[in-house]
Design a protein around this nucleic acid. Structure first.
Lengths: 341, 341
DNA sequence: CTGAAAGCGCTTACAG
DNA sequence: CTGAAAGCGCTTACAG
């Protein structure tokens, strides 16, 4: 309420003719309370429209019933990627089955994630934290791990996995299979565009890509590996750059459909045909991949499920002190026209 | 921290050789504190890695520094609509310029929004609330309005606008212009698919549609008005239904691109040509609209801006008691192949 | 089964 | 400019 005084446990107590202790016990469903007084108190609560003050409660019991979601900073970049919306949707879905609320970080400065996490934790705002992405030697993971605060990670980490709860696809394998598919349709000179190279997911995909090349005795060529943001322009720009190469690649693996689409459009404008001249395959399986002019071969990583399971895992971490549990979410490769053999 | 005792203002006070009152005054940047002690205290805070306990603070000052985001319940439906992701993105963007955190409702039961709002408010969890959609005679709006709790609405309302802060497009005008455009290319029998008919936005669009028809002396035909969810299937199903009509419509207005796309695909499969046989126009201007096989004429409602301004407006409502401010976000109609004349 | 009292960690009016 | 004390609204060990 704004001006009108808040209804307190004491008000309920008075009306019910009991003490506030008893009211409190009714709230927490303490089994020792007699059924009769419980009913009476419940009725009075209802009558007064009473809700316990969450701050007072949290202060007393040192639990908040809320979970912090750490969205990568600035993220004009990341966030325009549908992956985050989808994963967030999954998290909300998971949270709906629990009794937790979600506190979403509103990031300001780039690289301030750790500060936000500290504020959330030391300020007693959350009981646990979900990290939506991970970098190499991630300082947030390192911190959470060190103070043993409940958290779960969407993605993988390279620091001390044995204690970290993580939910991820097998990005190594996905990239490996995707590359292999492109090789299988007869391509030999395969370029790759990934996101920020500092991200674990980028690294894993590059590894998978390299392994597939190696297995087919194709030399990895540094000059065919690009990294950038998750937007159309990135794909567009790299495609133009690629088109100017002496030896045109005949295959391209891209980390996101929108980027891939930007590239495809650029190629088309340059008179380069997909898939005849260059076969293209990407990740995330967005509607765009399915329905664009030239349907794109794409890996569905099931971002909703990643989010949902990360949420469920976090609840386990908070309530049962689960640590080091790793969940792998299956991916599906949809083969479409952009990589027709 | 998990087990390790929390660092309190008292710890800082002891280290700095002052009282906790002084520490508190440093936190709130009270001007009466001497520069010297302020520096000293700040240093000690830093040294101990001190963050004030947000619950204790909120309890004392009766402000939380957080804002509640009410996402429509269940919303398998709503939420799959990119509009919500986009608007949420805008809200986060707006929040990043403020000092507020975001508490997102995790909905369980359909129609529980009011309960969630009450829990947020009476439980002292938030200083203000953003409503992401509005129904006719919306009980949440009625409640917030009655207790004069700061809130802002993405959309419009039909109860007591004079006190409600709202950010919206002119959906009446947008639908009117869109319909007029379809009429201008020579179409006379124009169907419409909107979302849930209880939503204010649906009502406004239907009104705009009707007005455009009336102005061109086209009789409104109830049997050409459909309402459903925001998904591909809805469009698909209604398209099949439409295709069976004795008199096939030659125009179609749809509330969302994905729905429109579902319809377009169904029509194609039935040998009905877009735009020759039926011209199609829709809302939201997603990537799909731009890049699908048959690019769709679509209204860009600028959902990000809707969210951003709703956030900014709410801050004004909280801090300056602003009420009844209405902001209109411009829309843009992109005319594409699906409504070529 | 229930109550009185102390405590959670902050803020602020009051006094100096 | 600074401190002691009371208060925000809950919870819980203790006593009965």
């Amino acid at each position: 309420m704004k001006k009108g005084k808040q209804v307190t446990a004491n008000d309920v107590a008075k009306l019910a003719g009991v003490s506030s202790s008893t009211v409190s016990r009714v709230i927490s469903d303490n089994p020792k309370i007699s059924k009769a007084t419980k009913m009476k108190v419940l009725k009075c609560m209802d009558e007064l429209g009473y809700y316990p003050n969450a701050n007072a409660r949290s202060l007393a019991i040192k639990k908040t019933g809320t979970i912090g979601i750490i969205i990568p900073t600035t993220s004009e970049d990341y966030f325009s990627n549908p992956f985050f919306s989808e994963a967030l949707r999954g998290i909300i879905k998971g949270a709906s089955n629990s009794s937790y609320d979600l506190l979403v970080s509103t990031n300001t400065e780039k690289g301030e994630e750790l500060k936000i996490i500290e504020k959330f934790i030391k300020g007693s705002k959350v009981d646990g934290v979900i990290l939506m992405t991970s970098k190499v030697d991630d300082e947030c993971i390192e911190y959470l791990n060190r103070i043993d605060f409940p958290f779960s990670l969407i993605g993988s980490s390279n620091n001390g996995d044995e204690k970290i709860n993580q939910v991820d696809n097998d990005n190594f394998l996905a990239a490996y299979e995707l590359t292999k598919h492109i090789i299988d349709i007869g391509r030999k000179r395969i370029a790759m565009i990934v996101g920020d190279i500092d991200l674990i997911v980028s690294q894993k995909r590059v590894e998978g890509y390299k392994k597939a090349l190696m297995e087919s005795n194709i030399q990895f060529d540094e000059s065919l590996l690009f990294s950038g943001s998750f937007d159309e322009k990135t794909g567009h720009d790299y495609a133009r750059q690629i088109s100017k190469m002496e030896l045109l690649p005949d295959g391209l693996i891209v980390a996101d459909d929108l980027v891939a689409f930007g590239a495809v459009k650029a190629f088309e404008n340059l008179g380069i045909n997909i898939p005849e001249d260059i076969a293209v395959a990407s990740f995330n399986n967005s509607v765009l991949a399915k329905y664009s002019n030239i349907p794109l071969t794409s890996v569905d990583i099931n971002a909703i499920e990643l989010g949902r399971q990360a949420m469920n895992l976090l609840v386990e971490a908070i309530e049962n002190e689960v640590r080091g549990k790793q969940i792998s979410i299956p991916y599906i490769i949809y083969k479409r026209q952009s990589s027709k053999g």
